[in-house]
Amino acid sequence: MAMSLETMEPNPVWAADAYPDTVDVLTAYGPDLVVHVWGGDWCKDCRSQLPDFGAALEAAEIPGENVHHYPLDQDKQGEGVEEYGIEYIPTVVVEYEGEEIARFVEDEPVPIAVYLADEIEAELGPVEDDA
Score class of each variant (00 low, 15 high):
P12I: 03
A15V: 11
A15K: 15
A15N: 14
A16M: 08
D17Y: 09
Y19E: 15
P20W: 06
D21I: 04
T22N: 06
V23D: 04
L26T: 00
L26Q: 07
T27W: 05
T27I: 06
T27D: 08
T27S: 15
A28H: 15
A28V: 00
A28K: 14
Y29L: 06
P31Q: 07
D32T: 04
V34M: 05
V35K: 02
V35S: 03
H36A: 02
V37L: 01
W38I: 01
G39S: 05
G40T: 00
G40I: 03
D41F: 00
W42T: 05
K44N: 06
C46R: 02
S48P: 00
S48N: 15
S48W: 03
Q49I: 01
Q49A: 15
Q49M: 14
P51Q: 07
D52W: 02
G54T: 10
G54C: 11
A55E: 08
A56D: 09
E58P: 00
E58R: 12
E61M: 07
I62D: 01
I62M: 04
G64Q: 14
E65N: 12
H69C: 10
Y70A: 10
P71D: 11
L72N: 06
D73M: 05
Q77N: 14
G78M: 10
E79W: 02
V81R: 01
E82D: 15
E83T: 14
Y84R: 12
Y84C: 03
I89N: 00
T91E: 04
V94C: 06
E95W: 01
E95M: 12
G98M: 08
G98T: 05
E99R: 11
E100F: 08
E100R: 15
E100K: 15
I101R: 01
I101F: 07
I101H: 05
I101V: 12
R103Y: 04
R103H: 03
F104W: 01
F104L: 07
F104Q: 03
F104N: 00
V105A: 13
E106N: 11
E106Y: 13
E106K: 13
